[in-house]
């Protein structure tokens, strides 16, 4: 097929985008790679059914979003051993937001605490908030990626932000 994308083209064009999104939810590079590869396996498996009625980017990011959400859900059932208690390091957040420079160990503790708090959000809420607030997608785009509506995305984001505020109030 003239003008078609091959396996190599497809991976080369989308690997950074997919890896970056996976890395938002799974900060360890090996975890992000595992999830990103899973996304491409699903893309190749589903490619024959791609009808072209949505831009390829939206189609791939929808698969990526669903895969990340499923993996978050799977890991929630199997919590990481040794996860620190959320309250113990809460003062670090206050110090950081008050402008205090954190040393490396404190910054690590703050990151772990923040990740623990995010893990408390329902997976779908976290995915929506990440796509909106970190990846900078519009509510309409997030709705397309998550198979939802623009209004539902906004409601979910509002609820997630409120929940996060309550956690660190």
């Amino acid at each position: 097929m003239p003008g078609a994308l091959s396996f190599d083209d497809l991976v080369a064009r989308w690997k950074v985008r997919v890896f970056r999104l996976a890395g938002r939810f799974f900060p360890r590079p090996e975890d992000a790679e595992d999830v990103a590869q899973e996304v491409f396996l699903k893309v190749f498996r589903s490619l024959p059914s791609y009808r072209g009625d949505a831009p390829l980017e939206h189609w791939i990011l929808r698969i990526a979003t669903t895969t990340c959400q499923d993996e978050l859900r799977r890991r929630r059932r199997r919590p990481a051993p040794g996860a620190p208690g959320a309250v113990s390091a809460e003062s670090l957040i206050e110090q950081a937001l008050a402008g205090k420079a954190l040393d490396a160990a404190e910054a690590d503790a703050a990151r772990t605490l923040a990740a623990t708090l995010l893990d408390r959000l329902p997976e779908r809420d976290r995915v929506v908030l990440t796509l909106l607030d970190l990846e900078g997608f519009s509510a309409a785009e997030v709705a397309a990626f998550t198979g939802s509506t623009r209004a539902a995305v906004k409601v979910r984001a509002l609820r997630a932000r409120r929940a996060l505020r309550r956690m660190v109030a």
Partner: peptide, 30 residues
Amino acid sequence: RRVVWLMRMGSGSETGVPPPGFEERLRERL
């Protein structure tokens, strides 16, 4: 601001790129 800061702290970096050999490992999985 507190929410956005938490999101950033608790999420991975936006500058991450796939490690070398990503395509080869993907081909093996395929």
